[in-house]
Design a binder for these strands. Structure first.
Length: 886
RNA sequence: GGGCGGAUAGCUCAGUUGGUAGAGCGCUGGUCUUACAAACCAGUGGUCAUCGGUUCGAACCCGGUUCCGCCCACCA
């Protein structure tokens, strides 16, 4: 009995592919079979390590997530098929401000560290009415953290469900959360290591401060926002003289904080002033006038007031000139209590100064500005303009004002004690590390370079928040109860993770907490980036498991988006450099954004992200959505186009139908011997090479497009049609039939594998019918990526162009049918096709197939001079009558 | 102010080292055709933003300009 191809029975399969069912079924199978599991026994060089971005689980899922995570998954799936041992974890970034904000709104609560813990606190989500009518419930720090944990766990479930449905081939055994014990442990170890190596310091200094969240922020979290400001021209006096001058400022409310006046040393206009004291209006404070290169003679009036603190330059002047500190803006953004004529607040007229200041005290920056302008315009009964300090009216100007990226009000410089990681002295080393990494696309490296070169401050890593990783630090209290910040007590590495607010430091009793001679815990938490900059180390279990670390670090690939190069990428590189003297990963792969037709980034806040990811998956299926995502080029923004989802859905349907057809063709097993089949295989082999090269560059989009193009234009619309007659046994002998079916199956098999990284569900479905058993690979996602090995049993065609030529000939015949209004399937009773002699000779070996596809009963191929090479002409054609219905 | 990316058919985008402009969608016409009407066949459609240069030849290389998006910048 001859060996026959195993086939499927056409009628047993559902007419239409049920994607929802397949998503469910295959998701379960993959889990059960452990297809995506990392094998810890395989060596580093066989392993492909992904440093997956842990999404912020603040509850807002949008298509941007789906987009970029699909990119990573396609790359990962391809690597897995290349035989690599995949380490593809998933983490949840749940600590930090976004969660705190979400919890505050969700339960309508406010955290107050002094409040006692309520072990029985049970809260329901707050209704909109409640939020509107009632004041937020005040809860303890510990209760608040518990609520944060509760909400993030729910959010993580939602994310996980989405990721599974989308088909991310994550190894769920490697799941982590940035607030879990291991991450807290590692973040605190990181702190201890940096401290030991001398990269950490804490000091009290002016720091960028968000007055709403009441926390310090780092340079990387600061963004400029355009704002309408106004120059106020204010006349200053000079001590012991009639001379005066006018400064121009956009922040008149800082006048009580004025500690100096400066102008450029070469500025002719102010030579006589240097070394003298200016007298501030209203407050009559004598302040030194000094020259500085940093003053720009072109700006304003060329001479300006130095305040503590209006901006970064003020901080510089304050330091260099050793000026006094007059911090008038408090941590809550309101003007603090103070008295002129005392201490650091001298005044030549304290009584008047205090009268003015009393009106400003307790006010916000904005209302204090309004009030002080009125005072400057008409101080104490005098009419406006009557020798008033304010010269003319404020002149509007556009300015860029620093804001915390998550905040609403401008940042202030407030003097507080903060912890810093020293980076300013390591810029060159960090730049060098950046150059040791391959950036995809390449130009994205520029972002890193520019950021690093322009870095102006060390990394402030302490935050005055609650839901975060605690500093493993306590301070001794002296006899007066004052903390000794210069010699912090560090936690023992073996005791981590610790919470200094509830754990006691080595050698102390809990009773000594906050007692003179005792200790106090560091209440601050780490900047969330302090933890998330450790994701490669979190994956590798750095300092916890040396063998695992050696197998997983540095990682191979870091996928991320470009707006966080200055934070996530930068800090991760810094950490790997400081801890391990190496790069954290070898490749950075940058996805673009999803944008609306107006080129605006899709986001919930701007209201252009209307469809949620689950809705999208319901409407179009996971494969179709993945198809859309994978059409993108790296680093390039992609428009949100509903049409593209439909195209993806169509592709899935076509794969299903083509699979059914090919795998139902019966024939004896036979090698691929026919010229047309060999020419097809030659083209297929070229496609494989092309797709493989694209994936080598992480360009899944190029690979997909090439594969898709081939699938429609060279497989379903053409090769299938050209071999149909032979595969049915209507044409040629058993060998010809076997060759056709063998080539169809090889084509389908290879194309399925090329599509598998992008379309995991439909490819697995079709693969499961026959190929799973035939190849011994139960899952296509564990099957080998197509390569030359797939084609080595097939001899080269006599003419590599004969497949293309057959397509051209068929197209000409189809055009004739179309022109005659005849369907392609109609029988051709007689056909005479002409080509020049050379072309006719080349077509000869595949002419039977062409005629078969055209359903010819009688056919003639003649040669005719004057036709171009490769051109065909239908000399005559008669078509059968339309078959009668019935 | 400095830098990066983009501008190609009505729309979304390809276009490898310079060599006659491509796909999909849309649109028009045709076809129920034994894998698929959730389909197929055929057709329409472009001064490659703009100006100049190099070249036998430029969408591609060089320079200028204009728009769009983004990143960065001490913001008196």
């Amino acid at each position: 009995m001859p060996d026959r191809f195993e086939t499927i029975s056409f009628d047993e399969l559902p007419k239409h592919f049920d994607a929802a069912e397949a998503e469910d079924k295959w998701g379960q199978h993959w889990d059960e079979r452990g297809v995506y599991r990392y094998d810890p026994t395989r060596p580093r060089e066989e392993t492909f390590v992904v440093d997956t971005p842990p999404p912020t689980v603040s509850g807002s899922l949008h298509v941007g997530h789906v987009f970029s995570y699909t990119h990573t998954d396609a790359i990962v799936r391809h690597r897995r098929m290349r035989g690599q041992n995949i380490f593809y974890p998933m983490g949840w970034d749940d600590n930090g401000l976004p969660t705190e904000r979400r919890v505050q709104n969700f339960f309508h609560v406010r955290c107050e560290p002094g409040v006692p813990y309520d072990p029985d606190l049970k809260l329901e989500p707050a209704s909109a009415k409640k939020i509107k009518k009632e004041r937020p419930l005040v809860v303890s720090r510990r209760n608040f953290i518990e609520l944060c944990n509760q909400v993030t766990q729910q959010d993580e479930q939602a994310f996980m469900a989405l990721w599974r449905r989308l088909g991310l081939s994550v190894d769920w055994a490697q799941e982590y959360a940035t607030i879990d014990d291991r991450c807290r442990h590692l973040a605190q170890l990181s702190f201890l290591d940096l401290h030991e190596k001398g990269h950490l310091y804490s000091h009290e200094a002016p720091t960028m401060w968000d007055v709403d969240f009441q926390t310090a922020v780092a340079q990387a979290e600061v963004e400029d926002r355009p704002k309408q400001g106004a120059f106020h021209d204010i006349r200053f006096g000079v001590q012991g003289s009639d001379r005066s001058f006018v400064i121009s400022t956009t922040r008149p409310e800082l006048l009580p904080a004025c500690v100096g006046v400066t102008a450029h040393p070469d500025d002719e206009r102010f030579q006589d002033l240097f070394g003298k004291n200016a007298i501030t209006p209203l407050f009559h404070a004598p302040v030194p006038i000094f020259p500085s290169e940093l003053a720009d003679p072109e700006k304003g009036t060329g001479i300006l007031m130095v305040c503590t603190f209006g901006d970064q330059t003020d901080v510089t002047w304050w330091r260099e000139q050793k000026l006094p500190l007059r911090q008038v803006i408090g941590r809550n953004g309101r003007l603090v209590e103070l008295t002129f004529g005392e201490g650091d607040y001298p005044s030549e007229n304290p009584e008047q100064a205090n009268r003015f200041y009393a009106e400003l005290q307790g006010k916000t920056v904005v209302s204090a500005r309004k009030d002080i302008v009125e005072m400057l315009r008409a101080p104490e009964g005098r009419a406006a303009g009557d020798d008033a300090p304010l010269q003319g009216e404020p002149r509007p100007t556009d300015q860029a004002v620093k804001h915390y990226e998550k905040g609403d009000r401008p940042l202030e410089f407030v003097t507080t004690r903060q912890w810093f990681v020293r980076l300013m002295d390591k810029k060159d080393q960090l730049l060098e590390r950046g150059r040791q990494i391959d950036w995809h696309p390449r130009f994205m490296q520029q972002r890193y370079e520019i950021w690093t070169e322009n870095l102006g401050l060390d990394w402030c890593v302490s935050r005055q928040r609650y839901f975060g990783v605690a500093f493993p630090v306590w301070y001794r209290l002296d006899a007066q109860g004052e903390p000794d910040f210069d010699a912090p007590i560090l936690a023992d590495a073996a005791s981590l993770p610790v919470d200094p607010m509830s754990d006691t430091p080595p050698g102390y009793e809990e009773a000594q907490r906050d007692q003179p001679g005792g200790f106090t815990g560091e209440p601050d938490v780490f900047d969330t980036w302090f933890t998330s900059s450790l994701t490669p180390e979190i994956g590798s279990h750095w300092r916890l498991d040396a063998d695992r670390h050696q197998r997983l670090f540095p990682a191979d690939m870091r996928p991320q988006s470009h707006e966080i190069i200055r934070t996530w990428a930068f800090y991760t590189i810094a950490k790997a450099h400081l801890h391990e003297q190496t790069v954290p990963w070898h490749n950075v792969v940058i996805s673009g954004w999803v944008v609306d037709p107006q080129r605006k980034k899709l986001s919930k806040s701007s209201g252009n992200a209307k469809t949620s990811p689950p809705e999208l998956l319901d409407a179009y299926t996971a494969d179709a959505v993945r198809y859309w995502a994978c059409g993108a080029r790296l680093g390039t923004d992609t428009a949100y186009e509903e049409k593209v989802f439909k195209v993806g859905k169509r592709l899935v349907t076509k794969l299903y139908n083509a699979g059914k057809f090919v795998l139902s063709q019966e024939a004896e097993r036979h090698p691929i011997t026919h010229e047309l089949d060999r020419a097809f295989v030659a083209e297929l082999a070229a496609l494989v090479a092309q797709a493989t090269a694209a994936y080598d560059e992480f360009e899944f989009g190029k690979a997909l497009m090439a594969t898709e193009q081939f699938f429609w234009a060279r497989f379903t619309d053409t090769f299938l049609e050209l071999t149909k007659a032979r595969a049915r046994g209507d044409l040629g002998d058993e060998a010809a039939r076997g060759s056709a079916v063998a080539a169809l199956r090889l084509g389908l098999n290879v194309l399925l594998r090329l599509f598998a990284p992008v379309l995991p569900y439909i490819t697995e479905e079709v693969w499961s019918w026959i190929f799973a058993k035939e190849t011994g690979q139960p899952s296509i996602h564990a099957a080998p990526w197509p390569s030359a090995a797939d084609f080595e049993a097939v001899d080269a065609p006599a003419d590599p162009g004969s497949f293309a030529l057959a397509i051209d000939a068929l197209t000409v015949i189809n055009k004739r049918k179309s022109d005659d209004g005849v369907s392609v399937g109609r029988v051709t009773e007689e056909l005479t096709l002409a080509a020049n002699a050379a072309t006719a000779a080349r077509l000869e070996p595949v002419w039977e197939d062409v005629a078969g596809a055209a359903r010819c009963q009688a056919k003639t191929l003649t040669s005719k001079d004057g036709l171009d090479d490769g051109a065909f002409e239908v000399v005559s054609a008669t078509f059968a009558e339309k078959p009668k219905k019935g």
